[in-house]
Amino acid sequence: MLINAENMDFKTLNQKIRECGHECHITGCCGQRFIGSGMMDKEITIDGIAGNALGAYLNGANITLNANAQDAVGDTMNEGTIIVHGSIGDAAGYAMRGGKIYIKGNAGYRAGIHMKEYKTKVPVMIIGGTAGSFLAEYQAGGIVIVLGINSNGRKIVGNFPCTGMHGGKIFLRGNTNDIVFPDNVCVKAAEESELKQIEPEITKFCSIFGYDLKEILNSPYTIITPDSKNPYKQMYVAN
């Protein structure tokens, strides 16, 4: 079903999405917040700029956005998929606990802040371009992948990545020599077995956005994990 969102407030828009059937195509979107929040069993396609907290608390629905997204995409999402054919603002995947976010372009500051996982629920976020500062701040679980496509020589990750990280994994593609990591994480070249784990995600990313899988895989990858021997060592008190 088609929904024209022009001049519609976010509450009405979400009401219409709930009322329409399984598939729903929103046009004329311009900054409405909370689109698809908490929804399950829906296929939502959006034309236009989605507002803050797109897919917050998402619980199984699939959202495809054909433009840029604003802040807090997938805030606390539990299950489902968010695909963004553009860039996203700050704090994407905030406290995400399940599901997947695929971003073609760049992510703002604090992508993956406080992502977490439990048993089989492992959230994944793939950023095609570059990520801003404080990537995966306080990460507690899940997987963040930054591919750095079209980075044109710029740093693929900003300052202070992994601050307070104590769980999960980050994969960075390409050169990471100019990125400064904190003492509380282990940084090393990803081994083949580790890359195997994320290959299905990268395959999906390439098929969604039309990239050549071989070319994307044919690059060194760095894996970052917390130094879990004593993650809080020296962070707050001398212990």
């Binding site: 311009c30 700029i49 604003q70």
Partner: peptide
């Protein structure tokens, strides 16, 4: 503060970016 506001002023705005801190 939000891209949506820019799109209202100019739907075809180009080179949209978020400056760093």
């Amino acid at each position: 503060s939000e891209e949506s506001a820019i799109r209202v002023m100019e739907p075809n705005a180009e080179n949209i970016y978020a400056p760093s801190g």
